[in-house]
Amino acid sequence: MNESDQTRVRAGIREAFRHIAPEVDLESIDPAANIREEADLDSVDAINLIVLLDKKLGVEIPESDYDQITTLQDMTRYLEAHASRDPES
C-alpha cells in the first residue's frame, strides 16, 4: 500500500457516497459505526454503492465479503487492501 493508492481509495469512497447519499458528511461519521445505519442506506443504495466502488476503484466486492465492509473504517481497509493488489483494470 502506497500513499497514492490510499488517496485514490479515499477519493473513490467519497465520490461514491456523494452520488448515493449526497447529504452525508463522511468526515462526521463515526468510522467504527455501521455505515448503512449512519448514512441511512437501503438495499438499493447499498448495491449502487458497491457498483460505484467497483467502477471507481476496480474492486469487485463479492456478496460473501459484505460483512467485512460494514463500517467506514473496515470498508476503507478492505478497499485499500484489494485496490493495491489489483490496481486499475
Binding site: 438495499s43 457498483v51 467497483d54 469487485e60 466486492i61 463479492p62 460473501s64
Partner: peptide
C-alpha cells in the same frame, strides 16, 4: 449472485 459482478447482482 455469488459469481456475478456487482452490477448484475439481483435484488
Amino acid at each position: 449472485n455469488q459469481n456475478r459482478s456487482p452490477s448484475r447482482r439481483l435484488l
